[in-house]
Computed example of a mutant assay.
Amino acid sequence: MKFSIAFVLSTAAAALTIFSSVQAAAIPTPVEIQKRDIEGLNNYACKLTPAHPRPLLLVHGTALDVSAWSTWAPLLIKEGYCVFGQTYGKYKNIPLLAAIAPIEDSAQEVANFANDVLTRMNATQLDYIGHSQGGILGRYWIKYLDGAGKINRMIGVSPIQHGTTLDGVTTLASALHILKSGQPLLDSVAPALYQMIVGSPFMQKLNAGGDTSPGVIQSNIATRYDEVVTPWKTCYQDAPGVTNTLLQDLCPIALNEHLAIIYSKIALRWALNQLDPSTAKTANCLSVF
């Protein structure tokens, strides 16, 4: 088969345009990262519909706050979801960071907020999207608080389901017998950090008896370039019926890492497909447009 020079050049130009658009959408700009209010979030006048019969709770990750959802939340609201979210997990005298308090306390905060949403929206269940640490607070709510039966779908976005080695740092520190000696310092500043290490007492408790809960439809998306939750496959849950997806299987040229994945419209399209499979559209590199 012969190709004209014009055809080759136009094809290359199209590929370059797609690549540039994907990468532009993959990494948040300073304007995107800055904290700002999200219009339509926590709107208790929002009407649940047959198409979207449950409130949707967004739970941010460690050291972030609710403004981390400034890309996803407006688009989910535009799709007709009643979207809710809060900033949780502030600790002692560190006002600039959230989600660093003991995870049990953060889970209780999320539980209290979620229960209030259910009551005020006159709903018995909600759907749940959690990023990083946010991906496990709902699990703790279900297993150890009063959350059993209250979550219909739980979607993890780079969730820290089984803890992290921080690219092997914690493994090395443990081998050098300095990991435990550093715990008091971590606990005095941000107790959640030590709790998220692979093999910590908290992670053992969270996953005791299995890492899924009966009746909850669970999905996870990970990125190969995750530098926070490592190895990245620890984002997955190993149980029948769980959907585990790698972002780069949807779009090989997506470079989103742990933070940037919540700014990815490809990951968002995948999440929308999990929320409502009946209206699913292909999630791929073209989802950025």
Results as ranks from 00 to 15, higher is better:
residue 15 A to D: 12
residue 183 Q to V: 14
residue 271 A to M: 01
residue 287 S to D: 07
residue 63 A to E: 11
residue 20 S to T: 15
residue 124 T to L: 06
residue 152 N to P: 12
residue 120 R to M: 01
residue 252 P to M: 07
residue 223 T to H: 02
residue 277 P to N: 01
residue 139 R to N: 07
residue 189 V to K: 04
residue 206 L to I: 00
residue 62 T to L: 12
residue 155 I to W: 03
residue 165 T to F: 05
residue 21 S to L: 15
residue 87 T to E: 03
residue 12 A to R: 11
residue 102 P to R: 05
residue 106 S to E: 14
residue 171 T to C: 07
residue 159 P to L: 03
residue 52 H to R: 13
residue 193 L to F: 15
residue 32 E to G: 05
residue 22 V to N: 08
residue 46 C to Y: 08
residue 126 L to A: 04
residue 163 G to A: 05
residue 214 P to R: 08
residue 124 T to M: 05
residue 35 K to I: 13
residue 22 V to G: 03
residue 98 A to H: 09
residue 8 V to S: 10
residue 237 Q to C: 13
residue 263 Y to C: 02
residue 118 L to T: 01
residue 61 G to F: 03
residue 162 H to P: 03
residue 77 I to Y: 07
residue 248 Q to T: 00
residue 66 V to N: 14
residue 243 T to Y: 14
residue 84 F to E: 03
residue 205 K to A: 00
residue 268 L to C: 08
residue 276 D to W: 07
residue 222 A to M: 09
residue 149 G to E: 04
residue 23 Q to R: 15
residue 266 I to V: 07
residue 36 R to C: 11
residue 54 R to Y: 15
residue 37 D to V: 12
residue 264 S to F: 02
residue 130 G to M: 00
residue 133 Q to P: 05
residue 60 H to P: 02
residue 21 S to I: 10
residue 247 L to I: 01
residue 146 D to N: 11
residue 198 V to E: 14
residue 2 K to I: 06
residue 223 T to K: 01
residue 120 R to G: 01
residue 216 V to M: 10
residue 240 P to T: 04
residue 286 L to I: 09
residue 112 N to C: 08
residue 142 I to R: 08
residue 30 P to N: 06
residue 99 A to C: 09
residue 25 A to W: 11
residue 57 L to M: 09
residue 161 Q to K: 09
residue 59 V to Y: 02
residue 68 A to I: 12
residue 99 A to E: 06
residue 232 W to V: 14
residue 229 V to I: 08
residue 51 A to Y: 12
residue 149 G to L: 02
residue 84 F to K: 01
residue 92 K to M: 08
residue 55 P to N: 04
residue 145 L to N: 01
residue 90 K to A: 11
residue 265 K to L: 15
residue 123 A to T: 03
residue 50 P to Y: 04
residue 144 Y to A: 05
residue 156 G to V: 07
residue 239 A to R: 04
residue 39 E to T: 15
residue 106 S to K: 10
residue 69 W to H: 02
residue 182 G to Y: 11
residue 178 I to C: 03
residue 211 D to T: 04
residue 2 K to T: 11
residue 227 E to Y: 09
residue 67 S to N: 10
residue 126 L to G: 09
residue 55 P to A: 10
residue 126 L to N: 06
residue 75 L to Q: 13
residue 254 A to W: 06
residue 188 S to Q: 10
residue 288 V to M: 05
residue 191 P to S: 05
residue 177 H to S: 15
residue 267 A to F: 00
residue 8 V to L: 15
residue 40 G to R: 10
residue 10 S to A: 12
residue 164 T to K: 09
residue 49 T to F: 06
residue 264 S to T: 00
residue 145 L to K: 02
residue 97 L to P: 09
residue 193 L to C: 14
residue 93 N to G: 08
residue 106 S to Q: 13
